[in-house]
Design a protein around this nucleic acid. Sequence first.
DNA 1: CAGCCTAACTGGTCAAGACGAGATGTCCTG
DNA 2: CAGGACATCTCGTCTTGACCAGTTAGGCTG
Lengths: 253, 253
Amino acid sequence: MVDRRSGVPAFRQVAADLRDKISAGDYAPGDRLPSERELVETYGVSRPTIRDAVNVLRTEGIVTAEHGRGVFVRPPSSIRRLSRSRLSKAARDRNQGAFLADAAAGGFMPSTSVKIRFEQADERVASLLAISAGDEVTVRDRLMRADGLVVQLAVSRLPRKFTRDTTIEQVDTGKGGAYARLEEAGHAIATFAEYVGARMPTPEEASALQLAEGTPAITVTRVAYGSDGIPLEINDMVLPADKYELSYEWVAD
Amino acid sequence: MVDRRSGVPAFRQVAADLRDKISAGDYAPGDRLPSERELVETYGVSRPTIRDAVNVLRTEGIVTAEHGRGVFVRPPSSIRRLSRSRLSKAARDRNQGAFLADAAAGGFMPSTSVKIRFEQADERVASLLAISAGDEVTVRDRLMRADGLVVQLAVSRLPRKFTRDTTIEQVDTGKGGAYARLEEAGHAIATFAEYVGARMPTPEEASALQLAEGTPAITVTRVAYGSDGIPLEINDMVLPADKYELSYEWVAD
DNA sequence: CAGCCTAACTGGTCAAGACGAGATGTCCTG
DNA sequence: CAGGACATCTCGTCTTGACCAGTTAGGCTG
């Protein structure tokens, strides 16, 4: 029941009560919550109020609603850990992109689709690639699927001057991937930098990644530098936060 | 106006239209949107429908509502970049914790509050610290403020066997911080590992960090290892995703 | 007995209306 | 002219009522 005199809005009281019941285990992961109309009875409030309460839990990501079936406690999803060793030369030499290596380890059927296009660098891209805004860049737009489900979006951008007359401008870059082609052209990768953030996905990202309401996206911008310190490539990735965790290790100095 | 025959729910049409107008610059960051009652007129739908639409944008984090004032386009917040060099020994020797070093660089007034407690390791903590579940750990619970605003929560846990009879069990650990005390006790830090994820904040975190609706939290778990590979400390941090970006650099191998 | 079909669930959307509470400018009063 | 009271904006909450749209299980039909 709801305390009308407490000053706390009714829908928040209901949300808090349901949240407590879930964390106490009264409703276990995968369980169906009572229907909205049942909750109307038990709490003595109207249906929109119940819906407001459930929406709070949905945006918190702890329940999902399925039309016609009910509202379910979201089971903790298995986290895939991405380590920076995915970019080691050893892994590259095995002719595996980072994603294919993950697939081999994770035991799922990988598939990727690539689109190539060319564009003029905007301010952010130009600054990260140390070129001038408006300079031409080669863009490789990748969609990665695991067992048919999209699990990762990645957009790779390279100054066109490094990719002309290479298979980097083709869908299939050949054995070893784009980094191997760069190396053949005299641009071996020397260092990496990654910038990690998180935000709510755009509607397009949410539908592409099939994100449930209340699931944030992790954004990773990776910059690959040559031995002379010149940026060779930036790679913008968007990952579902409920499926990925990034790991980094380093030696203390 | 709203197209009733399109099959797209009215509140989503309104949300999409407002989102487009915002990204097109019709409403600039900081601008007030038309009031809900005005939107009722322009779109020809009821107020609950308008509110649903606005709520979509709120959970997407692109507008905030202020009671009595209006709905405002959220200005892009300035991102503070946390680099791993914040943990270099040089920085530690300057008697600066990571947070104080950031403050010096960012030019804001820092303040922190610390609570010490002891608890028994749960499964996750035990596994990360390579001890047995139930073993006693020293917990340092920190709250960091910048100009009075809470900007970071951090919980540090160390096996009690490493902290007994040290100032690590005091609020003030002394010059150089906890890592310096560990080193004096023969446990120099050799390597770090960080695990980065993101999720929606709990209600407690949201109010502590004063997160606007629709702002995710970045979670960082840092493990510090001694030269013998033994875990010495784990540090769980929660950061507002709209204020922080993490950066990592490494040499390709 | 197999398969379809429908009834009775479920959540999704929307309306119209009411009142509460914070913010703010204006106008009146001292 | 300064300051406070109030009118009137804003969003916040909640109700009643209705219909639409997936889902599912049970019963009917062939």
